[in-house]
Nucleic acid binder design. Structure first.
Lengths: 140, 140
DNA sequence: AATGCTTGTGAGAATTATTCTCATTTAACT
DNA sequence: AGTTAAATGAGAATAATTCTCACAAGCATT
């Protein structure tokens, strides 16, 4: 089991998207893949710096933009806030936001997806992407 | 039919929300009520200035924020762009965005709404607001 | 209509998130 | 190791939005 044969996952992700593998990018990609929330650029930068202090703000924004462009990341902008990022190789899901705590939960409803496609078709369109966000408060 | 009894609609909207009636605010509110699109602050300002050249950027932002806060306006931020506004006393609807032209269409699906409420309920929540956007291209 | 108190206003400065510039460094291919 | 194109950090630039403050205007009361 030489390490030679176990090249980093994150390494491969960068190569696959045609990006050169740098330590800064590796730090950023690792942060994103281990994140269980939906961090914004500032949070990604802070966490990446824990791994590699040389990561700069510019590189963070550039890398996030590049990965989003290539489809590795999804971007979200919940209700007028900052852009938040999440890896998109995970199963598709929509978001339920607790408006009191800011917590973000994920859900899927194949039924809703199907109805969305029907609505689009009725207008003569096909869906490329969609966004469904439920802003909720705890049921009384 | 003295005009006395027919006070401006827009006038009343401002009073109802506890805002003083100024000529700048009237211009802004009129722009919003006659708009058939989803203008951003810059567009609202430009249109309001056609009615009253004294409207400033600061007042536009302040008035839009105040009206949104009071629930008179809805705000939208389509895919990382600028904030766009629309009056919310119109029937609820979601948005279908043509990703090639940027056109925004509106639709409603009571079926989808119902499923949304069910999803929220399953998580122990009730929906305060929601956002559903379909990013589409013309069907081939 | 004049008074007074409170709120709204414009101009421009300040903030915030994000993108760009450029001189230097580094990854990847020889 | 040598070459070249791409990536980097620092800080400047931009864009959208919010804030500051001195002055103006709304509105309730005379």
């Amino acid at each position: 089991m030489s390490t030679k044969f176990f090249i980093n996952n994150e390494d491969q992700i960068l190569r696959d998207t045609g990006l050169r593998v740098t330590k800064q990018r590796l730090a950023i990609v690792r942060v994103l893949f281990e994140a269980e929330d939906h961090p914004d650029a500032e949070q990604v930068l802070a966490r990446a710096r824990e791994r590699d202090a040389s990561v700069s703000q510019a590189t963070t924004y550039r890398t996030l933009a590049a990965l989003a462009e290539k489809g590795v990341l999804q971007t979200h902008t919940f209700d007028g806030g900052v852009t938040r990022y999440e890896v998109s190789n995970r199963p598709h899901h929509d978001h339920l936001i607790d408006i009191e705590t800011g917590d973000v939960m994920e859900f899927v409803s194949e039924e809703i997806e199907r109805l969305q496609r029907r609505v689009a078709a009725e207008h003569g369109y096909e869906i490329v992407a969609h966004r469904l966000e439920l802003y909720c408060r705890k049921a009384s």
